[in-house]
């Protein structure tokens, strides 16, 4: 259960003050697949970063699984992120020096699992994305789609309750994009809540719920839908 109430996020530089999120409120229930859309600069990524506790916020209330995030220090936030949240990114963000096994190992290390536990989790996760045969390969030896599947395996290895995906198919061709999307749907069906930022309307439609962010706020999706369809047509 994820509840955001009137979240504010302001970026300040010497010259400008940008309100990335203004009175942003949202609830995401257990097991949902939520797609987040919106024009570029609307605050989609900021929303995702705040949700993943990579960024702090300037006002409002954010509760993740009953925990008030604003009350947590960096250590506790990191721990919470490590246990509850998996991340996948548009550019995969695999660590280039580490082979697949070690990449998937990263979050498990911070979790403090035993070596045995980590090994079985890594193998399971890679199995699940169909790459267990390539455990010793480096990311640079894989195709984009494969890399993103490793990233998904890495995000899932710790069995998080939430999976946050930032344009997960943005760097992939359509065939690979479809495969990755299928994988995400499978994962969602097995019970993981997914919040996916995308600008691809077709992908967004495959989610159970769509949230449209405009100017740092959730806009009424139903009203805007025709406009969006028009734009795509």
């Amino acid at each position: 259960m994820l509840i955001m109430n009137n979240i504010k996020k302001v970026f300040r530089t010497d010259l400008v003050e940008t309100h990335a999120l203004r009175d942003f409120s949202l609830e995401v229930n257990e097991g949902e697949f939520v797609a987040v859309t919106g024009p570029s600069g609307s605050g989609k990524t900021t929303f995702l970063n705040v949700t993943g506790m990579l960024e702090t916020f300037d006002g409002g209330c954010y509760t993740l699984d009953g925990k008030d995030v604003s009350q947590l220090n960096d250590n506790q936030r990191s721990k919470l992120r490590n246990e509850k949240i998996g991340f996948i990114f548009q550019s995969f963000n695999l660590i280039p020096d580490l082979n697949l096994f070690d990449n998937v190992d990263v979050p498990l290390r911070y979790r403090g699992f035993s070596a045995k536990e980590r090994k079985s989790r890594i193998e399971n996760a890679l199995e699940r994305v169909g790459l267990s045969a390539r455990m010793k390969h480096l990311p640079s030896q894989l195709s984009g789609g494969q890399q993103q599947r490793v990233a998904i395996a890495r995000a899932l290895a710790g069995e998080p309750r939430f999976l946050l995906a930032d344009e997960p198919t943005g760097n992939l061709d359509s065939l690979m994009a479809r495969q990755v999307m299928q994988l995400l749907e499978e994962i969602n069906q097995q019970g993981t809540t997914i919040i996916m930022v995308t600008h691809d309307a077709e992908l967004a439609r495959r989610a159970q719920r769509n949230i449209h962010i405009v100017d740092g706020q959730v806009s009424d999706y139903q009203q805007l839908q025709p406009v969006l369809d028009l734009a795509e047509a």
């Binding site: 993943g52 990579l54 936030r77 990191s78 992120r81 991340f87 963000n93 660590i95 990263v106 911070y110």
Partner: peptide
């Protein structure tokens, strides 16, 4: 480091 932080590494770590 950004990736590690996203995957749950604390600043201290």
């Amino acid at each position: 480091v950004g990736v590690r932080r996203a995957l749950g590494a604390s600043r201290k770590a």
